[in-house]
Computed example of a mutant assay.
Amino acid sequence: MKSTTRGTLAALLTGVAAAVGATATPAAAVETVPVPVPLQGVENSLGVELPTLAGEIPLPTPGAPEGPQYVEGRLIPERVIPQLPVSGGLPGADLRAPLPRLLGDDFDHVGVGTEAADLRTLAPGLTLDAPLTAPGADNYGMPEPKLPQVGVLTPLLQTVPAANVVTGPGL
C-alpha cells in the first residue's frame, strides 16, 4: 500500500470516527448536577421509613447572540441590541414515599418523578431605525427625514416539562 493511500484511509477513518462520536451523544441532553437529600440518619434515629428524595439542578449555559443584520435602505442595522440565547433546563426531582399496608402486607410506595427538561430562552432585544432615509439620487444624494422606528424583540421561552406518578412494591 502506498503512503498516500494509507494517509487517505487514515483521514477517512478519523473523519468517520469523529462523525460517529458526535452523533452518539443525545442532542437534547441537559447538563445537570444531582442533589441527593440524605434522610438515612433521621430514619435510623426515629425508626421509621421516610420518603427518599433526590433532585437535579440544571447548569445554564449562555450562547452566542446573533449580531446586527444590515438591511438595504436603513442607516442603522437591525437588532441593535441582539437577543442573548441561554440554554439550560428545568430542575428535576424524584420523590418516593412509603404507603404502609395500603395495597398488601409489605410497604408499598408512591413515587413522583420529574426529569430535568430542556429550557431555551432568548433575552429581549431592541431594533431601531434613524429618522433619516438612506441617501438617494432623487434628492441629490441627501437623506430625507422620516419618522423614527423603535421595536422591542420579544423574549422567548421554550420547554417541554413532564412528570410521572407511579406505585409499586418496596421503596
Rank of each mutant, 00 (worst) to 15 (best):
P58S: 04
P155L: 14
A93V: 07
A17R: 14
I57L: 00
V71H: 07
L153E: 14
A137G: 10
L9T: 08
E78K: 12
A18F: 09
L119A: 02
V71D: 11
V112Q: 05
L156E: 10
E43S: 03
A116E: 03
A18G: 07
P161E: 03
V150P: 07
G125H: 04
E43F: 02
V48P: 00
E56H: 04
T4R: 14
A134L: 08
P131F: 09
V42E: 09
A116C: 00
V20M: 07
L147R: 11
V86R: 03
P145I: 00
G151I: 04
G168Y: 06
E43I: 03
A54S: 11
A116G: 15
A27H: 06
Q158T: 03
L126C: 12
L46I: 05
G170E: 04
L9P: 13
D138A: 06
A64C: 05
T14L: 13
M142A: 11
D129S: 09
V150W: 15
T127Q: 13
P85R: 15
T32S: 06
A123I: 04
G7M: 12
V33F: 02
T4V: 11
G55H: 04
A28T: 10
L103F: 10
T154P: 14
A116L: 05
P148Q: 02
G88W: 01
P100Q: 00
N164R: 15
P148A: 12
L128M: 13
I57A: 02
A163Y: 04
I81Q: 14
T121H: 02
P26R: 02
T154H: 15
P131T: 00
A163G: 15
K2C: 15
A123R: 04
T114V: 06
A24H: 06
D129H: 12
T167R: 03
L95R: 03
G136Q: 03
L13T: 09
R6V: 14
V30M: 01
N44H: 06
G41L: 06
P38K: 02
T14I: 05
D138I: 10
P85D: 13
A162Q: 06
G15T: 08
V30F: 01
V152Q: 07
E43N: 03
D106Q: 09
G55W: 01
L103W: 10
L119Y: 00
P68N: 13
P65G: 09
L13H: 05
P34V: 02
P60K: 13
K146P: 03
A137T: 06
L84S: 12
Y140H: 05
A24T: 13
A163M: 14
V152I: 11
T159G: 00
V16L: 08
